[in-house]
Nucleic acid binder design. Structure first.
Lengths: 340, 340
DNA sequence: ATAAGCAGCACAACCGGTTGTGCTAAATAA
DNA sequence: TTATTTAGCACAACCGGTTGTGCTGCTTAT
């Protein structure tokens, strides 16, 4: 068990050459003679030499690390995104530094600091719910650390971001519902503050308009995404004088709850009321009464695309990074779960 | 926009002091006078000085990085584990380096190399399915990189590991089934090569024995965890001359499939045949006919414990690390889903 | 008044590589 | 044969900090 790692200097001493010679010999520099090259390389192998990357990183100012900051991994959506990021990074020899903000602004800020301290080459962020102050994002800009936001985008000018465009999926959903004869289409949306909520609402309104259905406020209800909140939202809809014939739920989990609730209240799923939701999680495939369809947002692809975008930024000069800001919106897509 | 980062030398020059003085002033060393300390610290603030961690890491031979290597994040179980690891690491100022082996031995090896290159302080690994050669693990040992294995443990001597002990949960499961009058208890196990599979089998045999039930080979079937495999396994059991009255499934996903299959074949769930499974995923709560119970393995806690263990190893000397090997088995626990 | 002690700081080595420059000897050209 | 090139290597600076040692000048004790 060799006690210490062998360095370039150890090799230099044993061979009575200078350490620069060793360095160049190992990197196959032309100004080193074949004989010495061989000797160095062989001894390096014998001594099990491995360059100290921290020294190299230190010298080259490049770490091959990319920071990933997101609310939590305990969420299939984000976990898939990270999975995509890692795959892309792996192929280009980048390693992920991971931090969960837990949706807390302070923790997010501290993680950003840590990432900067570790001199990551770039950062991918999905913002915490509670983040209202953007100074840590501004700081990244000032420090010229390439940053790409994904999914949860801050309201800032001149940033790179990538997100899923719900519009396309929502339109498909409404089209399908209308084609099946639905005219009273309700929306169970999430917490009003969330950008994702606002986006769904706008897409919903737009899709209705395209189908020449006039939107009615009472058919849009909100849930805080707890079981109780979900049930309450469904109750609200069921209590309406004219029940909706279709419900678009904030996501699959909400859909599961409200479907469960509706069943308990004698609603025939996808007959009396047709359900459609967001995310297209695997769970849907195992439900006895899954929603008719779910709008897939392709988290893995989103993560992969975000990583690719960041890596492109890294390859080009830092001047370019502050110019052409990439604002990428990936289309979502309706996936029909129940065919019959 | 300051073009370059300010260094300790910039400060030293402007104040006409040596860089060592600046360094010590910033770290509040006692041998520096109050006046200079103040001057240095103020200028440092003005110039927005931030120490270059890569230089410090390089000098101190400590990175505050811990590597996490696992098959995939696209799996609730592993994602939760990482979530637990990150939380513990965060509180002790460690950051995670993440790599997915995708269950490929080569990729696992390459990731281990990368982690070592990045001079992580320690590593947490859950082994890839296909890993049969352990030389990269041995290498970690030789290089004195503290390593803790979790969940998927290699068959090696003298390693630290942490895993979930299925025995306790399995015993609870069988006890419950027997209490409810079941005597023909089947096991739908996973791929025979997987250690998790072997462990379930042994726990199953042991639990039966404790309940004085004699195990019959035909009541133990295997699935490759595909939908088809799951259905085939269930078919095998239903085709038996004497159908089992209870089935313990490899995990919740398998359970969902086989329950689905059984229902299609007129089996009354948890009446004709009682189901119990592993993992206790959230999905169970949304099924119309969930298994009677599921054996929870507390992945988040497992991750947290693994991280704590590694951090303890980091705090003690490297001599100690190679002596008292921590083999921790966390008890699993039966969670009853259906109360009526 | 002088020696001893200590506060306060500078100098330099070090971590392990990379890289620009310069020296020496052999090879080639004049 | 002498001048010029060039191959092959050594030397040293550098990246940005940390840390051991030594020097200076003031304060205190004798």
């Amino acid at each position: 068990m060799e006690s210490k790692k062998t360095t370039i200097i150890d090799i230099a001493k044993q061979l009575n050459v200078s350490k620069s010679t060793v360095s160049r010999a190992l990197s196959d520099h032309h100004s080193i003679g074949l004989r010495t090259k061989m000797r160095v390389q062989q001894l390096a192998k014998e001594l099990n030499y491995e360059p100290d990357q921290t020294a190299i990183f230190f010298k080259q100012r490049k770490t091959y690390l990319i920071g990933v900051i997101l609310p939590t991994l305990s969420n299939t959506f984000f976990a898939s995104i990270v999975s995509g990021i890692e795959d892309v990074g792996y192929n280009k020899n980048y390693t992920l530094l991971l931090g969960q903000s837990r949706d807390e602004e302070d923790r997010e800020k501290k993680i950003v600091e840590t990432m900067k301290d570790h001199r990551v080459d770039g950062i991918l962020i999905s913002m915490a719910k509670s983040t209202y102050n953007y100074e840590h994002f501004e700081m990244l800009k000032k420090n010229n650390i390439p940053t790409v936001f994904f999914d949860r985008i801050p309201q800032m000018q001149d940033i790179h971001f990538i997100a899923s465009k719900l519009e396309s999926g929502m339109l498909e959903a409404v089209n399908l519902l209308v084609k099946r004869g639905n005219k009273l289409i309700a929306l169970i949306n999430g917490p009003e503050k969330m950008p994702a909520c606002k986006e769904r609402y706008e897409a919903y309104i737009k899709a209705l308009k395209q189908n020449k259905i006039k939107a009615e406020e009472k058919y849009v209800v909100h849930t805080d995404i707890t079981v109780e909140g979900n049930n309450a939202a469904m109750k609200e809809l069921l209590d309406l004088p004219k029940r909706p014939t279709a419900v678009i739920a904030f996501n699959d989990y909400v859909a599961m709850d409200v479907i469960h609730y509706a069943k308990r209240h004698k609603v025939k799923i996808n007959k009396d009321i047709t359900f459609i939701s967001f995310a297209n999680e695997a769970i849907c495939n195992y439900m006895d009464h899954p929603p008719l369809a779910s709008i897939e947002q392709f988290p893995y692809q989103q993560g992969a695309k975000a990583a690719e975008t960041l890596l492109e930024l890294l390859e080009q000069g830092s001047d370019e990074n502050q110019k052409n800001f990439r604002n990428i919106l990936l289309p979502s897509q309706l996936v029909v779960k129940v065919t019959k």
